[in-house]
């Protein structure tokens, strides 16, 4: 994997990602939130919580919660990489669990789209804790492009933050 690179945060894209993640109930349930978004991709945080523990003896979180984190990061990364907002359903996902996540600490997932075609998007995602060079899990996924018109206008208004004061100011 390439070395961890510090991204310049893109506030417009971060806004899209924040509102997109905010519309997913399971992400609210697990407390998943964006850390950074750029034209290259995005980074999300999954805070440690008792409710995602998979083994009470060790306190290690369940792989399924990491799958949700990585699926969300990969799916939302298309909002950062495409010129126009599109929602792309997941075709498939493969996760390799490299090591158990250390209890008590957040897990971060950084996802990038490494190939975009007219029909398919290929993404890569890495999950880590404090040290980005020590990965907890890695994931590759493919998404299908169904176009912006496949999702209703109210949804895009919500993601674009059409109700925001800032946006209203810009439109004037």
């Amino acid at each position: 994997m390439p070395q961890y690179e510090v991204w310049t945060n893109d506030s417009l894209r971060l806004g899209y990602v924040e509102r997109f993640i905010g519309s997913l109930k399971q992400c609210q349930e697990l407390g998943i939130s964006p850390v950074c978004a750029s034209t290259q991709g995005l980074e999300l945080e999954l805070p440690y919580h008792q409710k995602i523990v998979g083994n009470l003896d060790t306190g290690v979180i369940h792989g399924g919660a990491i799958t949700t984190l990585m699926d969300t990061a990969s799916g939302a990364s298309v909002l950062c990489c495409l010129p126009e907002l599109e929602l792309c359903p997941t075709l498939d996902l493969r996760v390799d669990y490299m090591r158990p996540a250390e209890p008590g600490k957040s897990v971060y997932a950084r996802a990038t789209c490494y190939r975009v075609t007219n029909t398919i998007i290929f993404t890569r995602c890495e999950a880590f804790q404090r040290d980005p060079d020590i990965s907890v899990a890695q994931c590759v996924a493919t998404f299908m492009r169904i176009g912006r018109q496949a999702s209703p206008d109210w949804f895009w208004k919500q993601i674009e933050g059409a109700d925001d004061e800032s946006k209203r100011g810009r439109d004037e």
């Binding site: 109930k25 399971q26 369940h62 399924g64 799958t67 990585m70 699926d71 969300t72 209703p152």
Partner: peptide
């Protein structure tokens, strides 16, 4: 369960929840 939802349009279960469920 409402809290297992992802896509609010359909609405659909979060893909990660389906994955987590299948892992369990």
């Amino acid at each position: 369960r409402d809290q297992n939802l992802g896509n609010p349009i359909l609405p659909a279960i979060h893909g990660g929840v389906i994955g987590g469920f299948m892992e369990i």
